[in-house]
Simulated scan of single mutants.
Amino acid sequence: MLGSGLCFVAMTAGVKYLGPSIPAAQSAFLRYALGLVFVLPVLGVLRRTRLEPATWRAFGWRGVAHTLAVMLWFYAMTRIPLAEVSAMSYLNPIWISIGAALFLGERLRLRRIVAIVVAILGALVILRPGLRELNTGHVAMLGTSVLFAISYLMAKQLSGRVPASVIVGMMSLTVTVGLAPFALAVWEPVTLWQLWVLFLIATAATAAHYMMTYAFVAAPITVTQPVTALQLVWSVTLGAVFFAEPVDLWVVAGGVMVVSAVIFIALREHQLRRGAKGGTVAP
């Protein structure tokens, strides 16, 4: 999880480094297109897997949500500091919890509701609407977190129908195809150096997901989930040291509130699952 967090931060820093020199849609497309090299081993599994029409539609709609989320995320990276992007990205699990209750019939217990309220208050501390000027980057990041939550909820539904490798492979393919027309509409010439940086971004993203998956297999969530909080520390440090972004204590405080709520929800879910396996469910 430490390695995964470092790779996620490195990926974010790479996008920040490129900045607005490449349009958001184009840089997002190139990141996914270059990253397809890591999907090649899955193509054989994809060819052998027979999908029902409903599953194809689900993959398509998930591709739409993820495509829009990725474009907004790349755009937000060029408009707001690293620390704010990192802190607001922790809202994804909060929207997932709300969506699971609304659309998947999962029960929202009191403690989880309290954690969600704390996370939303943390987001308000970060944004401080009315007390400071908000720009389109903040709006884009809010949209990103909601759309990523929709994508992950759909992945959860698909996980009962097809192997995980197929879900990951189809996401990469559908997002690459979905980003293509947006990228072509704003296409600008790119240098070999920019392509190399984007390939490193794709590599870091793939490595981050791989290590995170390995961590989930190797250790219980009570060990792995709290480590994700370090991403906020690394983002704040990286932004201050390499991009001269001032450390906003309000953003740090709000981020700590959101991260704490996410960790609490994850640990609580782990306790409930252990209780269910043992024949009892904690109140």
Rank of each mutant, 00 (worst) to 15 (best):
I116M: 12
T55H: 06
R132H: 01
A140C: 07
H138G: 02
E84H: 10
N92G: 07
A58C: 08
G19L: 10
A115P: 03
V139R: 04
I80C: 09
H66E: 06
G63V: 06
M141Y: 04
I116V: 15
L68N: 01
V70D: 01
A24R: 02
V139I: 15
W73M: 14
A28S: 15
V117R: 05
L110F: 15
R48C: 01
R57Y: 03
A115K: 11
R57K: 14
Y75V: 04
G19E: 07
F38Y: 11
E133R: 12
L36F: 11
G122K: 03
R62P: 07
L40C: 09
I120T: 09
L82A: 10
F59H: 12
V45G: 01
L142W: 00
A25H: 10
G143P: 02
P20D: 14
L110W: 15
V15P: 01
A100K: 08
K16W: 04
I22C: 07
T49N: 11
Y90F: 15
L36A: 03
G137R: 12
A76F: 02
H66L: 11
G99C: 04
W56Y: 13
A58M: 13
A54I: 03
V64D: 00
L40I: 15
I116N: 11
T136A: 14
S97H: 00
F74R: 05
T67E: 12
G14N: 07
A65R: 01
R109Q: 12
N135T: 00
M141S: 06
A13N: 10
V39K: 00
T78S: 15
G19M: 09
I94A: 04
I98R: 12
R31M: 13
V15Q: 05
V70C: 04
P41C: 02
M71T: 09
A115H: 10
M77I: 15
L40P: 10
A123V: 03
H138V: 14
L18H: 03
W73G: 07
I80S: 10
M88I: 13
V118L: 14
F103G: 10
V114T: 11
V139N: 06
R109Y: 15
G63E: 01
P93Q: 05
S21G: 06
A83R: 01
V118W: 11
G35N: 06
A54S: 14
G19W: 11
R57N: 03
F59N: 05
R57H: 07
V70T: 13
Y32S: 02
R50M: 00
F103I: 09
R132Y: 00
L134I: 13
Y90S: 09
R47F: 14
Y75S: 09
E133G: 02
P23V: 06
L142C: 07
W73I: 07
R128E: 13
V118A: 14
G63Q: 07
G60C: 08
G105A: 07
R128D: 13
L91M: 14
R31W: 09
I98S: 08
A76V: 05
R111G: 05
V64E: 01
F103P: 03
I126F: 06
